[in-house]
Amino acid sequence: MRISAAQRTENENRVRAAMDRLLRGELPPGGKCDVKRLAREAGVDRTAFYGTRPYAHLRVEFERRLQLLQQAGEIPDRREAQIDRLKMENAKLRERLAQSEQIIDELTGFRTQALARLAAQHEEIVRLREAAAGTSRVSRLPTPRTTVTGSCS
C-alpha cells in the first residue's frame, strides 16, 4: 500500500521523536534499545527499516547514533548497561578468586614447610634428650619446690 508524502513525513517525524526518546534512555520496562523497539514506539512496520524500504536511512542513522553513544560510554539500554556492569564485576571477581587461590597455595606450602621444620626440631630435641640421659656427666637439677606463703596471725 502506498502512502502519501505527508504520511511519510509524519511517520519520519514519529520515528525521529521515538529515536530521540530511546537514545535518551526512555525505554519502557523490559524494552531494549533496538530497531524493533524503535518501530514499535513510532508505530511503523519494522520491515520498513530494511533494504530499500522508505525508512532504511533512519535505521542507519539510529544505529550510528547508538554506536556513538556506546563508544562514548553512554548506554541508553539499561539492560545492556547492566550486562556490561555485571561482566566487569564478574571479571573482577574472577581476578580476586585467582589471587585468593594463589595466596592459599602459597600459605599451604608455607604451612607444610613450617610443620616439617617443627617435626625436625622435635626429633632433634628428642635425640638430644636421649643423648643427655645416657651421659653420666650431666646431672639433672631437682625440680623447684613451691612454697606456700601465708600470713601468720
Rank of each mutant, 00 (worst) to 15 (best):
R2E: 15
R2Q: 13
R2G: 12
A5G: 08
Q7Y: 05
T9L: 07
T9H: 03
E10Q: 08
N11W: 07
N11Y: 10
E12C: 02
E12G: 01
N13H: 06
R14Y: 04
R14W: 05
V15G: 01
R16M: 09
D20Q: 10
L22V: 09
L23H: 01
L23T: 00
L23F: 00
G25I: 03
G25N: 05
P28T: 11
P29Q: 12
G30E: 11
G30C: 07
K32M: 10
C33Y: 04
C33K: 03
C33E: 04
A39E: 05
A39L: 03
R40E: 14
R40H: 10
A42W: 02
V44H: 02
D45I: 09
D45V: 11
D45E: 14
R46G: 07
A48F: 11
F49P: 03
F49G: 02
Y50N: 12
Y50C: 05
Y50L: 06
T52Q: 14
R53D: 13
Y55S: 02
Y55T: 06
A56N: 07
A56V: 09
H57F: 02
H57W: 04
R59S: 01
R59A: 01
V60A: 03
V60K: 04
F62G: 00
F62L: 00
R64L: 01
R65K: 03
R65L: 00
L66R: 01
Q67C: 02
Q67I: 01
L69Q: 04
A72L: 04
G73D: 09
G73C: 10
G73P: 08
E74F: 12
P76A: 03
P76D: 04
D77W: 06
D77R: 06
R78E: 10
A81W: 12
Q82V: 07
I83N: 09
I83D: 09
D84M: 07
K87G: 06
M88V: 15
E89L: 14
N90Y: 14
R94Y: 13
R94V: 12
R94T: 10
E95M: 12
L97W: 10
A98M: 05
S100G: 08
Q102I: 04
I103H: 11
I104E: 14
I104T: 10
D105S: 11
E106Y: 08
G109T: 07
R111N: 11
R111H: 12
A114I: 14
L115S: 12
A116N: 14
A116P: 08
L118Q: 14
A119T: 15
Q121K: 13
H122I: 13
I125R: 15
V126I: 13
R127K: 15
R127V: 10
L128Y: 11
L128V: 11
E130R: 03
A131K: 05
A132L: 05
A133K: 08
A133N: 07
A133I: 06
T135Q: 05
S136Y: 05
S136F: 04
S136L: 06
V138G: 03
R140E: 06
L141H: 04
L141W: 06
R145Y: 00
R145T: 00
T146D: 01
S151F: 08
S153Y: 05
S153D: 09
